[in-house]
């Protein structure tokens, strides 16, 4: 498990490894779906340095607007 730089959940997992062994890994966060590569700049990979304007609070995710709107029968 890895820490998501964007929403700081601890649940991110490896989704891909470089064909050349050991070059990089790609991680994905199941909470905010953020995806990143291990060798990206620290402003992408480090939760402390990730651009604050783009941080995601997991509590906000269920309130995100549906685009396009869902037909009534799917709305609980």
């Amino acid at each position: 498990m890895h820490t998501c730089p964007r929403c700081e959940s601890k649940k991110a997992e490896v989704v891909s490894k470089s064909p050349v062994e050991g070059a990089w890994e790609v991680y994905m966060c199941p909470v905010c779906i953020f995806t990143w590569r291990s060798i990206e700049p620290e402003t992408i990979t480090n939760p402390e340095k990730y651009n604050r304007a783009f941080k995601v609070n997991p509590a906000d995710i269920p309130n995100a607007e549906n685009v396009p709107a869902l037909p009534a029968k799917y709305i609980k």
Partner: peptide
Amino acid sequence: NLFDILPLFRLNQGDGGF
């Protein structure tokens, strides 16, 4: 596994993924 099949990468720094 699309991440293995396609050489995906980030375009802009604020993008949420590939």
